[in-house]
Design a protein around this nucleic acid. Structure first.
Lengths: 220, 220
DNA sequence: TATGATTCGTACCAGCGAGTACGATTTCTG
DNA sequence: CAGAAATCGTACTCGCTGGTACGAATCATA
């Protein structure tokens, strides 16, 4: 997540990079710029992010930003796309474990809470709140892509007779509500995010409740 | 909630009000300015609200805005305070009914969902996401003032033996999660708010689940 | 080695909005 | 009725940011 040089290191005396860069460095350079943009976003918020600020933090030039990302919105779009990819792969891997469903769900719930209260997600969601196109992107590449993954998992559990769930989408929303409660909105509004222990406790409690509400228990 | 003149009326030919206003009009005038500010906020978002725009919509002068509210932040602070007051009184009245607890909770839950997905709350929450001082105010005058009201109600139900609740705050958060789920965040990100029937259905289902998880049922 | 491609840094322009100043107008108060 | 008070509308300053232009520097390539 860090993107700038460690301040404890001796001050960077290298003169600014100039001229055509070595071949093959484009991807790393682009990632560095997105890192810089995310960091600026975390520190200053959507409206506080300036193209000049991002360029400076990445030791790039404004013109490169415009050449690569088109304009300011393009930069944020790229940022959202990258983070959505990371989130989706994380959730997928969490759900692909073959462990006991309760364990899988607890793992997923902890990951969800950690993700949603993490600085990147918080900054991006805050930004999206003030920009309709960004919000659409975030919803499209985030929730609307990750939700179905979980819904399919829950539907599979229902097919296997573990859960008594007829509407996977509703079940996903129930699980979400039990896990997240008002934590996300409070963190978005500036409260401190829960620590790891808190996250684990909340997640485990939520999953227990979820199972209590949806478990197929014919023998009771 | 409306604040400007009905566009179906004949065009307003009255010349702009000038000079010292009649005595005692201050309160209504201030409310009109806050209405205008809220409307601008709903239409254009936090960064899109300009002092000139608010002044024009309220047929006031920028200087009056500055004289009464100090600066831009002061205007928003006043807006938050007024809306928080309205919300608090609404919740209080909902909880003070002497009806069956389930009925009271359903009523409260419907009101909560309607409130949180309404244009005023959505606009204010979005604004708060991009301004830490605003967020602190919203949290302080909103959630941190309304939450305890509900918690006390739940604690009373526990004392009366209706609910099996040892931590009223946790119980409030559970109820909140069951009711709101991901509805608020989705509306904040631009999805259409649920209609009245949807709100009622979600609220009722949530309360049923809440009671199932917390009802004191010694005879089962 | 010579030419072209790519990038950095700086300078520049245009637009916008917060906040201020001021004259004109109306109402209040003595 | 006369002066004070409050308000409106307009005009102005000032700083900031998105976006563009251009020379200088460096690397790739033939």
């Amino acid at each position: 997540m860090a993107s700038t040089s460690d301040p404890s290191l001796p001050p960077d005396t290298t003169p600014p990079r100039r001229g055509r860069p070595p071949a093959g460095a484009r991807d790393a350079r682009e990632a560095a710029i997105l890192d810089a943009a995310l960091q600026e976003l975390i520190e200053y918020g959507y409206e506080g992010v300036t193209m000049l600020g991002v360029a400076r933090r990445a030791s790039a030039s404004k013109q490169t930003l415009y050449a690569w990302f088109g304009d300011r919105d393009g930069l944020f779009a790229a940022l959202i796309a990258r983070n959505a990819d990371a989130s989706a792969t994380q959730v997928s891997s969490a759900l692909e474990s073959a462990a006991d469903p309760g364990e899988v769900l607890r793992h997923y719930a902890r990951g969800l809470l950690t993700l949603l209260t993490g600085p990147a997600s918080v900054a991006l969601n805050r930004a999206a709140m003030t920009s309709a196109p960004l919000a659409a992107r975030l919803l499209h590449e985030g929730r609307h892509r990750i939700g179905p993954l979980v819904e399919r998992y829950l539907a599979d559990l229902a097919d296997a007779g573990v859960l008594d769930v007829d509407d996977p989408e509703a079940a996903f929303e129930l699980l979400y509500g039990l896990v997240v409660q008002d934590t996300q909105i409070r963190v978005l509004l500036g409260e401190d995010p829960p620590d790891a222990a808190d996250v684990a406790a909340r997640a485990d409690r939520a999953v227990a409740r979820f199972l209590r509400l949806t478990a197929a228990n014919p023998g009771r």
